[in-house]
């Protein structure tokens, strides 16, 4: 039952999976940033820079899934 269900799935599932993972990843990054700023408000700027970078690299994964894999 489960196997036929899986076999019948078509479309760009990998993009959905990538988007799911990226969502979790960005959420974790945001959690880390918020915690870090909460502990040390003076470090706001460096935390922001590193957080934004980490988010950008995480986010790129969904674009790899979109464009690098055949649909």
């Amino acid at each position: 039952m489960m196997l036929t269900l899986l076999a019948e799935m078509t479309g760009s599932i990998h993009v959905g999976l990538a988007a799911m993972g990226v969502g979790i990843g960005i959420g974790l990054t945001g959690l880390g940033m918020a915690t870090a700023v909460g502990r040390n408000p003076g470090a706001f700027t460096p935390v922001l820079v590193h957080g934004i970078l980490a988010i950008a690299f995480t986010e790129a994964i969904v674009f790899y899934a979109l464009f690098l894999l055949p649909h």
Partner: peptide, 9 residues
Amino acid sequence: VSILFRPVA
């Protein structure tokens, strides 16, 4: 590759 994807992202 990651740099080339920056404008796309």
